[in-house]
Computed example of a mutant assay.
Amino acid sequence: MRIGIVVDSACDLPKDFLTENGIIVMPITLRFGELTIEDRRDPLETQTFYASHLDRKSEDFAESIPYSVEQIEKLFLERLVLDFDYVFCLTITSTRSPIFDHAMQASRAILTKYKEIRRQAGVPERFGLAVISTRNLFTGQAVPVAEAVRLIRQGGTPSEIGARLKHCVEHTHTYLVPADLFHIYKRASKKGDTSLSWGSYTLGSWLDVKPVLHCHRDLTSTVDKVRGFETGVGQLFAKAAQRIEAGLDAPWICISYGGSPAAVSRLPGYAALAARAAENGVEILVSPMSKTAAVNVGPGALSLAFAASGHTTH
């Protein structure tokens, strides 16, 4: 059985990983005033974007526009129902984007129209589709996707993979340290994120105090405050190394950075984290933070996620 994976471009995975595993990316369109840009997870485009757009700080400057119901339906009916026999569509949390709802609406039409398309192409008629909200953001979306890749490689059936992904989604934890508080306070707050108050924004800007944000099961909150970006990142890497030792539910640590991924290995604590991962058969996937993510959390931010049942933020 040919099993495929579809994600939206907010999913922070390396381009090579996406390409090698045939993962289909639904672009998200970003609008800056009169200018529109597609977030396609192209590394060079992303680095250019960081340099040319994220230094502008107008509260109403940017918005993101996900694939519509019609665009998702077209993608499946023109391509995916022929390329695959079963597809997992894993989206960013439905509390931050309508793309999960769009995919659910599109799936109803897809499942009523695919048979004739496959019949005309001489392909066995049976086709299946599962739309799953990862209930998370950025690298937190990446962890279940990476796990789906692993399970497909092992020859898992759709039902086995689906059950495993639901467990992974429920136990994925994402942490983020921003370098610039403006974008979180001004832009993410517009989407209902109250994890950074006006007082915290003002004080943090004066004293270089960074919030450590945590996302789990659709909810984002501030779980710590640290002096300086590198201090926060060092603490995240140490937490991840400890969690590897305690046990993960999936052998992945996903990291994204709002700058060059090559800089991640030079940040405090990364070498120790990489050593611990290698000792325990855990793979670290480092990618550029998506344009969509960076619009909301600012340039230079770092996100890290893993799946671990029983994990607490303290």
Rank of each mutant, 00 (worst) to 15 (best):
W198L: 15
W198T: 13
F237G: 05
V143Y: 13
G247Q: 09
R153H: 14
K191V: 12
G228Q: 04
V209F: 12
I184V: 15
H214P: 04
S197Y: 06
L213Y: 07
G247H: 07
H171G: 05
A240C: 09
G259M: 08
V177P: 02
A241Y: 11
D249A: 03
V226Y: 10
K190A: 09
G162A: 03
H173L: 08
A246I: 09
Q141G: 03
L213R: 01
S205E: 04
D193G: 03
G228M: 08
Y185F: 14
P178R: 08
R243M: 15
V212P: 00
V169L: 11
A246S: 15
V233K: 06
F229T: 01
K166Q: 11
P144G: 00
R153P: 00
S260W: 04
K186V: 02
F182T: 07
R227G: 03
F237Q: 04
C254Q: 08
G199S: 04
P261N: 09
E170W: 00
R243Q: 15
L165S: 03
H173F: 05
W206E: 08
A179L: 14
A188H: 09
L176M: 13
Q141H: 07
V212L: 13
G155R: 06
D218W: 13
G199I: 08
W198P: 00
L196D: 05
G199W: 13
H173K: 03
V145F: 06
L213D: 01
D180P: 00
G234M: 08
L213H: 06
L151H: 07
A142E: 00
V209P: 01
K166M: 06
P251R: 09
F182Q: 03
K166V: 11
G192C: 11
D180G: 02
T157Q: 07
D249M: 01
L213M: 13
S189M: 02
L219P: 00
S256L: 06
A238V: 01
W198R: 14
T172G: 02
E245V: 14
K186W: 12
K239A: 13
V177K: 01
P158V: 10
R164N: 10
L236Q: 11
V177Y: 10
P158I: 09
H214G: 06
T139W: 10
L151K: 03
S221E: 14
S200F: 05
H214V: 12
H216W: 12
E245W: 10
D249P: 07
Y175C: 07
K239V: 05
G234C: 04
G192N: 12
H216Y: 13
Q235K: 15
F229R: 03
R150I: 03
I161R: 01
T172F: 10
H216D: 01
F229I: 01
I184G: 01
I253D: 01
V143N: 06
I253T: 05
L165H: 00
L236W: 12
